[in-house]
Computed example of a mutant assay.
Amino acid sequence: MDQMLRIGDRMLMYAVYGAEDGVPVMSFGGTPSTRWKRPEVVATIETSGLWMVMPDRPGYGGSTRQPGRTVASVADDAVAVADALGWERFAVTGGSGGGPHALACAALLPDRVTRCAVTASNAPPIVDGPEPTEAEEQAYPRRNRTSWLAVHGDLRPGLEKTARSIMAAVVEGGPEFPPDPGSPPGPPAREDPAAVARLTATFVTSHDGWIDDHIAFATPWGFDLGDIRVPVSLWHGSADERAGKYADHLAAAIPHAERKCYVGGHIPPTNAYRELLRWLTLS
């Protein structure tokens, strides 16, 4: 169910999944993504005993853009959404670019957040020095060209080119998500109006949230990973080497963080996602 919340002079859009008597969980989408999720993801949430809210960060899905936002800025929005839902305490989770935002809530809202699980989360990048080479980026993902350009160049042309390429593949019959290595591709997204709507909202309607996410990642996050005291689990796929290297850094920086490796790639399969959701409900 889509909802709208006014925060100052901004509008924030969010969607709620599951049952109102479920465990409260706030989920932060990847970079880029919106609050609209694939049916299999929604089904897993609904069978896991959760009441989950997925806010669109500023610049995504109808949420008003917030130029200059930091990763830490998400905490104020999280409080506003939780208050609107009547939540005193809640767990947080985030995948890929949503991971830093979930970690921000864990660090900055210790009296509200119960647990934090992130999947294939980014780690703070290193943007000093010259533009990284492709070899440097593969060896040290924290030295990546996207983050470097976010500080020293212009991200928009490259992201728009990527978006056009993704949508062109969809037009040609590609799936909504690329399959894991060795797995068959999913059905053609162009044959599913709901999938086309999700892709259009993510890759066509606006690129502002995508750009602002990367700028936020590449500049000071606004909190210290070492200040996180709530239970944290760091999930990544066995075939996702980049995410594994990010997890190395996060595990070293966050006290008592647990490592959780599942068989798969960047997007967790249903069994791994269900286990992550179960972990969020533990007391």
Rank of each mutant, 00 (worst) to 15 (best):
E137H: 11
A72D: 09
K161T: 10
A104Q: 03
V71H: 12
V127Y: 14
G94W: 00
S96C: 14
L149S: 12
L155E: 11
A102D: 04
R142W: 13
Y140N: 14
I126R: 01
E160G: 00
A84N: 12
R115H: 10
A104S: 12
V81I: 14
T93H: 04
I126N: 01
L159G: 05
H152N: 15
P130T: 07
A104C: 08
A104M: 03
D111K: 05
R112N: 07
V79I: 14
A117C: 15
S147K: 00
G59N: 06
V81Y: 05
P110G: 06
D83F: 05
T162V: 11
S73G: 05
P125F: 09
E131S: 15
Y140G: 00
A120K: 00
E131C: 15
S73M: 02
G68R: 00
R164Q: 12
R115V: 06
V151G: 13
G99L: 10
P124G: 12
H152G: 09
R112S: 10
A84W: 03
R112G: 08
V118G: 09
P124Y: 11
N122K: 01
G129D: 07
V74A: 02
E160S: 05
L108T: 02
V127S: 12
R143Q: 08
R156P: 11
G94M: 03
V151Y: 10
P125C: 08
P132K: 00
E134G: 13
G62M: 12
G61Y: 06
D56A: 07
D77H: 00
T162L: 15
R156Y: 10
R69N: 10
R69D: 11
